[in-house]
């Protein structure tokens, strides 16, 4: 009982933090993209406005769809919010918080992907079908690369728990090792692919035949749509937090002192602002790949991950 209450408190706090950071990050990313393409940006809180409007509407369910369609959005949202407990946001103290390691995280992501694809296929519309299949294709190509990247970082730290990995890497030198450079690049490609960012998928279109993520969401409306979009934003932030934990863990707090946590919060904000800028820049500079080039892109991620894994044994003994 004594350990349970603080556990509950920190867990709730972490979920709330990630859940609120996600729309803010999305807003910031959209601001960066708008500014880079000479448009007047919407406010930072635009995602909140969109989603609160959607949440107040009624949910319309297509004829002939099953319960799967109705339950997919809350399940996806809940799973993603839960998986936010597996990555360190502020401190690495979380030995009590963590109930799984990075591999569990990839497992949850796979489950989320399957649920989304099933929900999309359930309605029987061609677009949903197409989007679901494509999502599974990208996912199965990205997953081995993700696992290899996690292993690379784990070899350096001796644990697949993200909290301990971040803790071990935090005390290392500032100069990244070659394996971490390869791993980081692979992770960047994975992040772009898994979160439907621009070289793989265009997040701001509902009209292209090459869309992946949006094709799956076409049939959702009202609160379901809000939950799905919020879930995707949370997924992006979770991937960013994982990337920060594995490759840029400096500034994470070690102990649970309040001043430490506030300092870590400042660092986190700084890192997320930078990440948003870099992502926005990448999305503005790159063109969307043809769908048949996507396997090539993900192969590159996988090969970089293998290179990182190998380089650890050759260059860093």
């Amino acid at each position: 009982m004594n350990t349970f209450l603080p556990f509950l408190g920190t867990s709730l706090f972490q979920m709330l933090l990630v859940g609120l950071l996600a729309p803010l990050f999305l807003g910031w990313l959209n601001i960066v993209k708008a500014l880079l393409s000479n448009r007047t940006p919407a406010s930072l809180f635009q995602p909140f406005r969109d989603w609160s409007k959607l949440l107040s509407k009624e949910s319309i369910v297509p004829q002939g769809s099953s319960d799967l369609f109705r339950w997919a959005p809350p399940a996806v949202f809940a799973l993603l919010l839960t998986s936010s407990l597996l990555v360190p946001a502020l401190g690495t103290h979380g030995k009590t918080v963590a109930f799984g390691d990075a591999l569990v995280l990839t497992g949850i992501m796979a489950l989320v992907r399957v649920l989304m694809a099933l929900g999309a296929i359930d309605t029987g519309t061609p677009f949903g079908n197409l989007g679901g299949r494509r999502e599974m294709m990208v996912g199965f190509l990205a997953e081995p690369a993700t696992v290899l990247v996690i292993f690379t970082a784990s070899i350096l730290s001796g644990s697949t728990m993200t909290f301990q990995t971040a803790d071990a890497l935090r005390s290392g030198t500032l100069l990244p090792t070659p394996s971490l450079v390869f791993g980081g690049l692979a992770f960047l490609l994975i992040l772009l692919g898994e979160n439907a960012r621009i070289p793989i998928d265009n997040p701001s279109t509902h009209l292209e035949l090459t869309m992946i993520h949006e094709a799956m969401l076409l049939e959702y409306s009202g609160p379901s749509l809000a939950l799905m979009e919020w879930g995707s934003a949370i997924k992006l932030v979770i991937y960013l937090l994982l990337g920060i934990a594995l490759f840029f863990p400096w500034g994470l707090a070690g102990d649970e002192g309040l001043s430490d946590l506030i300092r870590a919060g400042g660092f986190l904000l700084l890192k997320l602002l930078t990440a948003g800028f870099v992502l926005g820049l990448l999305e503005t500079l790159m063109a969307k790949l043809r769908i048949f080039r996507v396997p090539e892109f993900m192969t590159l991620a996988f090969l970089l991950a293998i290179l990182g894994f190998l380089s650890h044994f050759v260059l860093e003994v």
């Binding site: 100069l175 990244p176 070659p178 450079v181 390869f182 090969l303 970089l304 290179l307 860093e316």
Partner: peptide, 15 residues
């Protein structure tokens, strides 16, 4: 470690 890093980057450029 700097040389190791540069070596890794060199390999990356060839790829």
């Amino acid at each position: 470690s700097l040389i190791g890093l540069l070596g890794g980057l060199l390999l990356l450029t060839v790829f």
